[in-house]
Nucleic acid binder design. Structure first.
Lengths: 231, 231
DNA sequence: ACCTGAACACCGTTCAAGT
DNA sequence: ACCTGAACACCGTTCAAGT
């Protein structure tokens, strides 16, 4: 075919369309994580999808930890740039938190990546959003750190459990309801002397709504913030 | 030596003092995790300390996940049996949470193990303690699940970050202060247009007290619970 | 019933060698 | 400058073979 000649005559493209780059690696890593779960992200699998050897990736990314943080940040960055300027700072916090919840629900691996990179860019983005809202809420300066910290810990806690549930569900090959039902069954068979309360929670466990519960927790913390302001 | 003869004549001991058992495996696993961190728990290293082959462990434990949950449960079980019957349900929750915090602070790997086994025995113990206190707090039945859930998520969030910090600190080979200082330095160099708030938190980050912040978060949630009761 | 340890099928990471 | 891919030093897990 004359295609070869044409290529030869074309202006030397600075880079092949499908050449390696940090961004392309991150994009394919996200695809892989979404499709195969956390254990699916492998330098070999990634190299396969990128049509190179595993060593090539190390030219653009220092190690697996950095890769995971970068993929996590791609998702979190996308989510946080959806600017929130609602009717009140509390509404902003709720919107920010829900946006994050939905992103993590769609990409459960973000939950564990977020936890494993404390103080890194993904967490910084979240902290900034929370902090600005807390300023608008007139939280006094010396209360800002602990309040922001509590909100972040709570969000990370939910995110982590979300990731863990997804992981267990995947390895068991069952869907959410089947998984919850089997845990609920275990709970109802617990010793009734030692675990009366958890036994009674088998029903709620099966029927609960993760998203609504998450928001309820945010509201609990915001309620506490309001209570502290009042005195 | 005649020791061999004596052994032959002795009543056949049902088990060698140092023979394998689930409990012994769990004990040594805890030693290993405390000494070497999360990545130090290996079937080979464990077998080494137990003076057997890696295969032997599988007779007593199904897989690594079960082993980690069992070691986690050993610590959590110990912590939760320190019965709390303080002056008020709120005091009980605070005592329970602080007991857990201190245990996780002493054994950071418990944090990630806890997150990775949702609905399993370790989490059940915590839920039971929290739930009973919430009943005593007169939290109405339909609010018990989300409230308990929020408290657990917050605790797991702090626990997970604690584990992550310990892991990063270990791989970097730096102590807590050095680690915090380096993160704080990164924060103060962030873009001041995009991250004014996080920049201002570099100081608090360096000086904060994890334990006090943790308790402040618990109090925030309890404040929210109180606020909901009032109306 | 319980233990042994070689073997299997993977990992992340490195690095000489290529272009 | 960037890519290749074999090689290294590990993993968790299995399983025939032993006692």
């Amino acid at each position: 075919m004359s295609r070869w000649l044409m290529v030869k005559k074309a202006a030397p493209a600075p880079r092949r369309e499908d050449s390696l780059s940090r961004d392309r690696i991150v994009d394919v890593a996200i695809e892989l994580l979404d499709a195969e779960g956390e254990s699916g992200l492998t330098f070999r699998a990634l190299a396969g999808r990128l049509a190179t050897g595993p060593g090539a990736i190390y030219w653009h990314v220092a190690n697996k930890g950095e890769l995971l943080t970068a993929t996590c940040d791609a998702i979190v960055g996308r989510t946080m740039t959806i600017a929130v300027a609602g009717e009140s700072p509390e509404t902003d916090i709720r919107a920010l938190a829900l946006g994050l919840f939905d992103a993590i629900d769609a990409h459960p691996w973000v939950g564990s990546a977020l936890t494993r990179a404390p103080g890194q860019l993904p967490a910084v983005r979240i902290l900034e959003g929370l902090g600005q809202a807390l300023c608008a809420l007139d939280v006094p300066a010396e209360r800002q750190w602990p309040t922001m910290s509590a909100l972040l810990s709570y969000i990370l806690g939910v995110a982590g459990q979300n990731a863990a549930n997804a992981h267990v569900g995947r390895t068991l090959g069952t869907d959410r309801l089947a998984f919850l039902s089997s845990v609920a069954a275990t709970w109802s068979e617990l010793d009734e002397e030692a675990f009366p309360f958890v036994r009674s929670m088998a029903g709620p466990l099966r029927e609960h709504d993760d998203r609504a519960d998450f928001l309820a927790g945010i509201d609990l913390i915001l309620g506490g913030v309001r209570g502290q302001a009042t005195g």
